[in-house]
Each structure stands twice: as C-alpha cells, then as structure tokens.
Amino acid sequence: MTTDEGRARLAEQLVALPVHELVDVLRRVLPHYTEDEPGLRTTLVLATATTDEDTPDVAELALVAWPDRNHHEGGLGADQGLWNEGDCATCAVTLTSNAKRGHCPVCGSGCGLT
C-alpha cells in the first residue's frame, strides 16, 4: 500500500474499531518497529496523553498495556475504554489499559492494573 487512497482506506477501517479492538490491532503491528542497537532499544508504543483544563500545557502520559489474552480466555478484555491504570513493576513506566491484566509494551512483563 503506497498510495494516499490506500492509507486513507486503512485509516477509515481503524477509526471504525472500538478502542479495545484498535489496541489489539496495534499490538500486532507496533512491536515490529522496534530497533535494537548496541546498548539501546527503541520501541514504538501506543500512549495516552491527558491534560487538565487548569494546566492545559502539562500532559500526563501513560503507555497502553496490551491486554493479557490468556487471563481473558483469549479475549481482549472489557470494552470499557482505557480506564485501568498502574505502573510496570519491572521497568516502572505508567500504564493504562482496557483490561485489568496486561503486558507492558516496553519490557513485556505482566502487569496488574486497577
């Protein structure tokens, strides 16, 4: 797919997905763009940025954890938006997810979110 029209069609399909399905699609794509160099790893991840109306120039960032499909019997977790939050116990990044149990997109560790 190299045309603007092809990318526009794909974008329309992605926009039509509910958030938990979009996250699942991106879980299958983004890790393929990880780059490893000696002593350095760069991973493409999905994140949320939340701003408060009192401080609109300050954003809180959270990486989107991939739902733990084993915990959810092969499913994607509840379709409830990205309301579950927590920190990765291994690499300490802040996470958000639609699921209570997920995997950190940076280090792959299992995480419990509340």
Rank of each mutant, 00 (worst) to 15 (best):
Y33G: 01
S97P: 04
L26Q: 05
D24K: 07
Q13P: 00
D57F: 14
T90P: 04
R7T: 10
D54G: 11
N70F: 13
P105V: 06
D57P: 01
P67G: 05
P38L: 10
P18C: 09
L63I: 07
L113S: 01
A99T: 00
Q13Y: 07
T96L: 02
V23K: 01
V19D: 08
V64T: 04
T2R: 12
C104E: 02
A59N: 13
A16R: 11
G110Y: 07
T42C: 07
E12M: 02
L10E: 05
V45M: 03
V19I: 14
L30C: 01
L14P: 02
V58C: 08
C111G: 01
V93F: 00
T2C: 06
H20R: 11
D36F: 10
T43N: 04
D36N: 11
A78N: 04
P38H: 10
N98C: 07
V93R: 00
C91D: 01
L22W: 09
C104T: 06
S97N: 05
S97I: 02
R69C: 14
R7M: 12
V93M: 00
T50P: 04
N70I: 12
T3S: 15
L82C: 06
T51M: 12
G77D: 01
L17F: 10
L22D: 03
L82K: 05
A78G: 11
G108F: 07
T50S: 15
D54E: 15
